[in-house]
Design a protein around this nucleic acid. Sequence first.
DNA 1: ATGACGGATCTAATCCGA
Length: 266
Amino acid sequence: MSFSITTWNINSVRLRMPIVEQFIVRHQPDILCLQEIKCQEPEFPLAPLKALGYEHIIIHGQKGYHGVAIASRIPLSEDHRQNYCNVGDARHISAIFERGSRRIRLHNFYVPAGGDEPDRTINPKFGHKLDFLEEMKVLKADTPGVSSILVGDLNIAPLEHDVWSHKQLLKIVSHTPVETDGMKDVIAKGGWLDLMRQYTPEPEKIYTWWSYRAKDWEAANKGRRLDHIWSSPELGPFLEKIEVLKEARGWNQPSDHVPVTATFKF
DNA sequence: ATGACGGATCTAATCCGA
């Protein structure tokens, strides 16, 4: 038995439904986790996703900003939305699904970007990001009888080869030491496996995001690995592959993030 | 090196992203 999970920061799901459908038709993930849907629940495009076989859809929406959703061909249960930092943002949703005899809790995150200045004394957005990370440290991958998968736009590129230039980005939000150490601590304290790096170890570069602002994103290739797929250790041996769909950055009216898909085989 | 782009919003000019 195998199954696949995709994570994709879609940067407005309503605007981007044509490429969501294109992706689904070509890649057919069992579960699609979206971030930055930028709409409330009633505006979410349920009908086209259900028509494509995603009958189980849970949404944590917000007007204009943020927002996460899980669309699944597999039934979802025990869904939960955690109000990180107690500020009312829609940045997390989770649910349990079953594959064979396994129960798996899936978390879908959109971690705050953190603004420009990597100093919490002058930039509250950076403080919010660090507080959010701190709160993620209590999330344990290993729970009795239930495996875990954590995906999403975590807005941090933790390793040297997760950015186009380690030296040039050390003071740029998303790759500062306080963020990268914080993320490594979330992974260590929670007992997570970084599946993308299990499949593609350093020093190979991995990017999942390329800025809209580059004149030619592909030529410049100044990317960062901001999107992640983690799991509890017992799922590691069952990972078949990870695919980062770089070509999606060149699709019509693209998101600045590309879909990342993990396929497991039991 | 800041923002060249792109999206949402009280459709005009502003906030936000990272």
